[in-house]
C-alpha cells in the first residue's frame, strides 16, 4: 500500500487513545486506522461514544489531561504528528489543520471583539501587519457571506446569531489557508435552514481553497450530501469504510446496515423502523471480540472471541467475520431486534 501514501494528506494508522477515569481505563479508540486523500471530503459517522470526537482531538493532540494516544501513528503529509514537539504541533494546528467546533459560541471569547480574535490568529501564523490582517479578515468574512463585514468585524460574539458565529469560525479557520479542515459536528447546534447555509458555504470554500475535509457527524443526511468517502465508527473502532455512494447503497457491515435502516426517511412509508437491540457499548468494559456482537444479527461464537479482520474489496473495508453471510442477509434464525430493549447496558 505504500505507493498510495503519496496521495494521502492524512493517514491514521492503528491508533489507541485511552482515558484514565475513576472507574477505570476508557479505551476510547482501540486500533483505529483510516485515511483522507488530497481534495477529498471524508465523513466520520457514528453514534455517541463511538470515538468520533476523540479521533479529531487525537489528531490535533488537544485531548483532555487524562487522555493519551498510547500507540499508533498519525501521518500528516508523511510526517508523524505524534513525534512532533509541542511547539511544532502548535504551527500544525491552525496553519495546516483547522478545527471547526460544534458549539460556535464556546469557541469564541465573549469579551473580545471579532476583529481582535480574527487578527490575533492571523498575525500569529501569517506574519502580517495589523492592517493587512484586518483586510484579510474582512475579506474572509465577506467570502463566508457576512454582510457589511467591514463594520460588523468590530462586534462581539453575542451580537451574532449561531449561524453567523459558525461562519466567523469558518472565516477565521480558512484565513490561515490550512490544507485540512476537521469539522466536528459543525451544524448540529444549528437549525435546518441555517445548517443548509453553513454546509453550502463549507462546500464553496472547500472548492475555492482546495481543502481536504474530515466531517464528523451523526447525521447521515449531512454525510450523504457532503462527502466522497465515509468511515463508520462503532465502539472506538472503524467498522466499515468506503465511497459514500457504496456505503449507502451496498453496506456490508451489519451495524452500517442496521443504522441506515433505522433512520426515518422520506422514501420509506409509515411502517416500523428497523431497530438495533440494546444500546451503544460502554468503553470501560467493552464486549470482547467484535464490539458489535451483542447487538448483531449475524453473531456466531467466533465473533465473541476474535476481533474481526479487515477485509478488502477495492476501496471498501469491512470489519466483519461474516461478510459473505451479510451479503446474502442470512440473519440468525433466533435474532429478535426487540429483544435488547430491557437489557442493561451497564
Amino acid at each position: 500500500m505504500s505507493h498510495e501514501s503519496e496521495d494521502r494528506i492524512l493517514d491514521v494508522r492503528d491508533i489507541y487513545t485511552y482515558f484514565r477515569t475513576e472507574a477505570g481505563v476508557v479505551k476510547a479508540l482501540d486500533g483505529v486506522s483510516f485515511d483522507i486523500r488530497y481534495n477529498e471530503s471524508v465523513g466520520v459517522v457514528g453514534e455517541s461514544g463511538c470515538g468520533k470526537t476523540v479521533t479529531s482531538r487525537s489528531i490535533l493532540q488537544i485531548l483532555p489531561k487524562n487522555g493519551e494516544v498510547v500507540d499508533g501513528q498519525i501521518l500528516y503529509k508523511g510526517v508523524d504528528l505524534l513525534a512532533l514537539t509541542p511547539s511544532e504541533m502548535r504551527t500544525v494546528r491552525g496553519k495546516e489543520i483547522a478545527l471547526l467546533f460544534q458549539d460556535p459560541l464556546s469557541a469564541l471569547n465573549p469579551v473580545m471583539s471579532i476583529r481582535e480574535q480574527m487578527i490575533d490568529v492571523i498575525m500569529l501564523h501569517k506574519f502580517l501587519t495589523e492592517e493587512e490582517a484586518e483586510a484579510l479578515a474582512v475579506e474572509m468574512m465577506h467570502a463566508v457571506g457576512i454582510p457589511e463585514a467591514d463594520k460588523r468585524i468590530f462586534d462581539y460574539p453575542h451580537q451574532y446569531s449561531g449561524g453567523m458565529r459558525q461562519r466567523i469560525l469558518i472565516a477565521r479557520a480558512l484565513a490561515l489557508q490550512p490544507s485540512l479542515l476537521i469539522a466536528d459536528e459543525p451544524t448540529t447546534a444549528l437549525d435546518v435552514t441555517i445548517q443548509a447555509q453553513v454546509l453550502d458555504i463549507i462546500k464553496r470554500m472547500r472548492e475555492e481553497h482546495k481543502l481536504s475535509m474530515m466531517l464528523i457527524t451523526h447525521n447521515l443526511g449531512v454525510v450523504a450530501e457532503n462527502t466522497d468517502r465515509i468511515h463508520v465508527f462503532y465502539g472506538g473502532r472503524v467498522v466499515e469504510s468506503g465511497p459514500t455512494r457504496e456505503i449507502f447503497k451496498d453496506p456490508h457491515h451489519p451495524y452500517t446496515i442496521a443504522l441506515l435502516e433505522s433512520i426515518p426517511s422520506f422514501k420509506k412509508g409509515k411502517g416500523r423502523l428497523a431497530t438495533i437491540p440494546g444500546s451503544v457499548p460502554q468503553l470501560i468494559d467493552p464486549p470482547k471480540g467484535c464490539r458489535f456482537h451483542p447487538r448483531c444479527a449475524y453473531v456466531t461464537e467466533m465473533c465473541k472471541k476474535r476481533p474481526p479482520a479487515v477485509k478488502i474489496k477495492t476501496d471498501h473495508y469491512v470489519a466483519c467475520h461474516h461478510v459473505d453471510r451479510v451479503i446474502k442477509r442470512d440473519i440468525n434464525a433466533d435474532y429478535d431486534p426487540n429483544l435488547g430493549y430491557a437489557i442493561d447496558n451497564l
Binding site: 435546518v192 435552514t193 445548517q195 443548509a196 447555509q197 454546509l199 453550502d200 447525521n219 447521515l220 443526511g221 449531512v222 454525510v223 450523504a224 450530501e225 457532503n226 459514500t244 455512494r245 449507502f248 447503497k249 441506515l260 433512520i263 426517511s265 422520506f266 422514501k267
Partner: peptide, 16 residues
C-alpha cells in the same frame, strides 16, 4: 434544507 440520506437523490435546495 433537510439533508437527504441517499446520494442518488438529486435535491433542489432552496437556501434562505
Amino acid at each position: 434544507a433537510i439533508p437527504f440520506p441517499d446520494p442518488d437523490i438529486e435535491k433542489k435546495k432552496v437556501i434562505l
